[in-house]
Amino acid sequence: MSTTRLPSESATEPGAASVSSGPSAFDALASDALAADIPASDLRGSDAPASAGPDASIRRTPRLRLALILGTALVVGLAIAVPVLHVTAQSSYDAARESLAFKQSTVEPMAAAMRSNLTDAKTLLDESNGHVLDENPRSQLAAAIVEADRRMGVVETEIAQSEAAAKVTPNTSILLAGFGLRQGIATLNSFKLNDAGELASIESTLSPAMNAVTGAVAAWTAEQKRLRYTKDVYAAGWYPELDACRGSVDVTARYGVATIAEHWSCGGRDFPDEAGTLIELTGLHAGTYRVEGIKAMLNQATATTADLPTGYDLLYQTCQNGQSSTMSMTALTKVS
């Protein structure tokens, strides 16, 4: 039996246009769009599948080229900018160090002088103990010292911190584009060291308190001098002058050693012999003397001038209890 073959669906119907095997009109349009950088999806619609194969590679080429150009520009820009930023930061860092060094050279001597004054104030406070008539000036000085010490501590701490910061070496790697240097600049610039006014203020508080204590000591000294044992050396001579009982007599010409003398009953019993006592002499040998104590007890009958103590500014001689066998020789050192 003969079989009739059915016509194929792919067979060309009479009058139908033949299908071209070349590129479609859409593909040509897409190629034009690619040159204009228009996404193919805008042509095909949002549901159109992305083309694969060589066409996709062709469409990516302009974007890759642009990325390469931008990347190259960025690398070149960084290669130029990084060294410039480093050099600029280094110059600014050097300037900051010089500025800090100048401020340090200005304030450090002032701080040292103020610390010296503060030390003097503490010494004055200690030495004035027991040498003022009124403790109020010393109390005010003590309070001023505490406050000055506190304020000086703040100044000295900032100076010490600035010195430590100046010794720190920042990270100068060129790859950091000066970042480490800029951190160093910020640290160095944070130390103002504008303490001249503060130090002057401390001085203006401390000096009046010191002057007040110095004045109080002077008043105490004057009062002690007023109350101090005073002896008048009214003449130089020998027995006639001693027997006149008018005061001490300079007998240096007789003894060969600077000596004043007085009978026990004429005032010898009252003359201080305790070491450290300050006395005032008027007339001959006038001045303030410190008693050094009795340095020899001589017997008039056996002693000679060779037995007299030597090495002192002045000797005071009297016969203890009026007895010539116990002639006391008290040494005196001139103070003023």
Rank of each mutant, 00 (worst) to 15 (best):
A96F: 11
D232Y: 04
I174N: 07
L74C: 06
G267W: 07
L181F: 03
A177T: 06
S99E: 07
A216T: 06
I174S: 08
Y234Q: 07
I260Y: 10
R151I: 04
N299T: 07
F26N: 08
L278Q: 00
E274P: 00
E156Y: 03
S204A: 14
G322V: 02
A303D: 04
R150S: 10
I294T: 14
S92E: 15
T305H: 09
L332T: 10
I69V: 03
S116R: 05
A306K: 09
T277C: 13
A235V: 12
S173V: 10
T12C: 02
T282K: 10
K231G: 13
S41M: 09
I69R: 13
V155M: 07
T123C: 02
A48H: 04
G293S: 00
K103I: 02
V107S: 07
R254A: 14
A253F: 06
P83H: 04
V233F: 06
G322K: 09
S20C: 01
E135I: 08
G283K: 09
Y229W: 15
G256H: 14
L78E: 14
F191Q: 01
Y312I: 13
T123H: 12
K167V: 05
T61H: 11
S324E: 03
G311K: 00
A56C: 09
L78C: 08
V107P: 00
A160M: 05
E147R: 11
A200F: 04
P39H: 06
A28P: 00
R150D: 09
N136Q: 06
L78N: 15
N321S: 13
D32G: 13
P14D: 06
Q140W: 01
W220R: 06
G283I: 03
I80H: 11
S41Y: 12
L227H: 09
R115K: 12
G184R: 05
D307L: 08
D42E: 09
A56M: 03
T106V: 15
V155T: 08
A244E: 01
R246A: 11
E13V: 03
I69T: 10
A144K: 12
E241D: 14
S324H: 01
E98K: 12
R115M: 09
L29A: 14
S328L: 15
